[in-house]
Simulated assay, not measured.
Amino acid sequence: MSKQMMNDTQKITQNSNYIASDMNGEKVMLDIESGKYYNLGAIGGRIWDISEKPVTVDEIVAVLVQEYDVAQDVCKQQVSVFVEKMLQEGLVEVNGAAVR
């Protein structure tokens, strides 16, 4: 597992090794290789959807601030932590390169 940290210019995108489905408003995912399941919740699922195409953390934050009642600085801090966890789990890739 990588300890790589994101910077503001790096773009993330979904790792194609996952099957994702919406279940009762939450995003549930299956890792095709390991069989491991993930539940990203509603907002985590929205972040997953936004990362369908390469996107920076700041671009994710801009979308979420428009859609939810959240301060930009709070949103950025929470999105950064969530994206780091997604990166560590291999759910997303940085600039097209898997990190696991």
Results as ranks from 00 to 15, higher is better:
V63I: 15
I19P: 02
K53G: 03
D73R: 10
E26V: 11
I60M: 13
K27T: 07
A62P: 06
E33T: 11
Y37S: 10
W48L: 06
N24C: 11
F82Y: 12
D73T: 12
Q66F: 09
V74I: 15
V70F: 07
Q78S: 09
P54K: 08
L40I: 08
E59I: 05
Y37Q: 13
Q72F: 10
L64K: 02
W48E: 04
K27Y: 02
Y38V: 04
K36V: 11
L30P: 04
Q77K: 15
Y68I: 02
G25R: 01
Q66M: 13
V55I: 15
S51P: 07
A20R: 00
N24T: 07
G44R: 00
K36L: 07
V61F: 02
Y68N: 08
G35C: 06
D73P: 05
I50G: 10
G41A: 04
A20S: 05
S34M: 06
D58T: 10
K27D: 02
F82W: 05
M23L: 15
S21K: 13
V55T: 15
K27P: 01
A71D: 14
S80I: 04
A42C: 07
V28N: 08
E67I: 04
Y38C: 04
F82M: 09
G35T: 03
D31P: 06
A20G: 01
T56N: 01
R46H: 15
L30S: 07
S21Y: 10
E67W: 06
A20V: 02
E59T: 07
Y38H: 12
V55E: 12
E52N: 07
D69T: 13
E59A: 14
D69E: 15
L30R: 10
Q66L: 13
E52H: 08
G25T: 04
E52F: 08
N39P: 00
Y68W: 11
V55G: 05
E26G: 05
D73V: 09
F82A: 05
Q78V: 09
M23V: 15
N24R: 12
S80D: 15
I47F: 13
G45W: 05
C75D: 01
K76G: 02
D58K: 10
Q78A: 10
T56D: 03
V57W: 00
I60A: 06
A20L: 00
A71V: 10
A42M: 12
